[in-house]
Design a protein around this nucleic acid. Structure first.
Lengths: 203, 203
DNA sequence: TCCTTCGTGGTACGACTGTATCCCCACCAA
DNA sequence: TTGGTGGGGATACAGTCGTACCACGAAGGA
């Protein structure tokens, strides 16, 4: 056998280059040649490790979904279990907002993919990411909080969670569009949590 | 003078064709030739009435902003003034959600433009649409409601309005992505309004 | 040593893009 | 009737796109 190369490592490198282009110049600017240039390799190399452009784009959205999922999961794990529900929501929703350059770049790329998927089913985001899992988990957390009395009765856990996630999503859009900065967005989220859990539970 | 043509009417026709393409096949699929074909004219005609592609795209986002603004304004006007604040919010937020095919198409195109503007400042959405005006108006309505006691004290009108608009925006995204249908989205909005105004004021 | 196979550089092709140019026809003022 | 201008058909051009193809160097098994 001739000299072997770590294909996975090569692919990760190229995918990172793709996402860098997507988050700075948009999905339109992503071409096989541009990815090659950004990664510092020849066009042929991109062709070799991703036969198609479709495969290349698919790799981008897959990596992106993994990153966003990891971001939420790591933050949640760092907090540990058995913490007040209020804290859980604060951490999880805060992990979705683009608080630093990296997460902002990822959210920009994600938005680009999402918008593309709305009209081009070929690169649809559906199924590749599981917001349902997050939704179910948070619903469980909130339902428990209702039972233990941490949250006033009369609250519909399911709808509250959907509402909070949609709110966070909307705030992400406005932060990306620079109509609002992250701190304002965090303030809005915390205000909502205050009114849901009662201001005294802040933390 | 030779035969004169209504330039504005011609341009509207072409812009409509552009938005039809953008909402069904995405902004990527918009080329001068495609717009010409969709409008049933030759490429030259598109060139003639919009010298640039930039001008053409600009016309699209302008028309879109006008449509969305008109949709909210018309609904608000049809309701009249002096109505309960709860009704105002119900109507206005309901006007933003894509409840029929037309508004869905417009929201799809709007999302495409918005996403493009995030990375390509050339077709940024900023300034072309004034969500601030809507935000200020609703904040005023809610502030009055707090003063008259229609809404419990301790509510921050400004943040509540920002929150409601961001929520609606997030719901629009999920409806466009078919993770949720419009009725579910409306239910979430009404749930939030119930908790803000008190369930008794429903209507 | 030869020979096969992996990895890669270079290049070519057809399709498409935005833009520019040329030309003609319909029309109205003169 | 003539001349000139607005409107538009047809085509060309340079560039970029995804993809395909060819050739070659490197490296390990025979």
């Amino acid at each position: 056998m001739p000299r072997r190369v770590d294909h996975d490592e090569r692919r990760r490198h190229l995918t990172a280059a793709l996402l860098r282009i997507a988050s700075t110049r948009g999905l339109q600017a992503v071409s096989m040649r541009e990815v090659a240039a950004e990664a510092g390799v020849s066009l042929r190399v991109v062709q070799y490790y991703f036969t198609d452009k479709r495969t290349l784009m698919l790799s981008g959205i897959t990596e992106l979904a993994a990153r966003l999922d990891r971001r939420v999961r790591e933050r949640a794990a760092a907090i540990g279990t058995g913490l007040p529900p209020r804290t859980v929501f604060d951490v999880v929703l805060g992990a979705i907002l683009p608080t630093d350059d990296d997460s902002r770049a990822d959210q920009l790329a994600w938005t680009a993919y999402y918008a593309a998927g709305l009209t081009d089913p070929a690169e649809a985001v559906d199924g590749r990411y599981a917001p349902d899992a997050l939704e179910r988990w948070l619903t469980g957390v909130l339902a428990t909080a209702v039972e233990t009395g941490d949250v006033p009765a009369g609250v519909d856990p399911r709808i509250e969670v959907v509402s909070l996630l949609a709110l966070t999503n909307g705030l992400v859009s406005s932060v990306l569009g620079r109509q609002r900065d992250v701190d304002d967005a965090l303030r809005v989220v915390r205000y909502r949590l205050d009114r849901l859990f009662g201001a005294a539970t802040r933390g």
